[in-house]
Structure formats: structure tokens, C-alpha cells
């Protein structure tokens, strides 16, 4: 398996984790108002955390895609 394909599988796994974390069922365990994190309710801060994780995951995929311009097939 080339690194291009491997990266996409890793990305898909992280994407599923993000989807579960920001929605039912995982989000319901982090849905409380307290504690306040950087002044924001837990329910709010939790989602922002995952937006940041999502951003860096996309950025990583973009950088690794560009490093390998010769990939045979794009998914």
C-alpha cells in the first residue's frame, strides 16, 4: 500500500471519530454546561476542539497530498 492510500485511510478513520465525537453518542457525555473551559461551557468548548482537530487533519492531508504529486489514483 502506498503512503497516499494509507493517508486516506487514516483520514477516514479520524473523520469517523470526529463525526462520533461531535454528535450522538459521544457528544452527549460532553454536553454539560460545566466546567467552563477558557470561559466557555464544556458543550461549546468540546465542539470547538473538534473543529480545530478537523482543521489540522485536513491540513495534514493537504500537505501530504502535495508532497506526492505523482499518485496514480485519487480517491
Amino acid at each position: 500500500m502506498n503512503s497516499y492510500k494509507r493517508n486516506r485511510i487514516i483520514f477516514a478513520v479520524i473523520f469517523v471519530i470526529i463525526a462520533l465525537a461531535t454528535n450522538w453518542p459521544v457528544y452527549q457525555w460532553m454536553s454539560g454546561a460545566e466546567p467552563l473551559i477558557f470561559g466557555l461551557p464544556l458543550s461549546f468548548a468540546w465542539l470547538i476542539l473538534w473543529v480545530i482537530i478537523g482543521f489540522f487533519t485536513l491540513l495534514w492531508l493537504y500537505i501530504s497530498d502535495n508532497r506526492e504529486p505523482e499518485h496514480p489514483e485519487d480517491l
Binding site: F15, I18, A19, T22, N23, Y27, L47, I48, W50, V51, G54, F55, L58
Partner: peptide, 9 residues
């Protein structure tokens, strides 16, 4: 916020 980060992918 929840759907934005998923929807862009």
C-alpha cells in the same frame, strides 16, 4: 458548528 466541520470534508 457541528455540521460545518463535517460538511466541508
Amino acid at each position: 458548528i457541528g455540521y460545518g466541520i463535517l460538511g466541508i470534508v
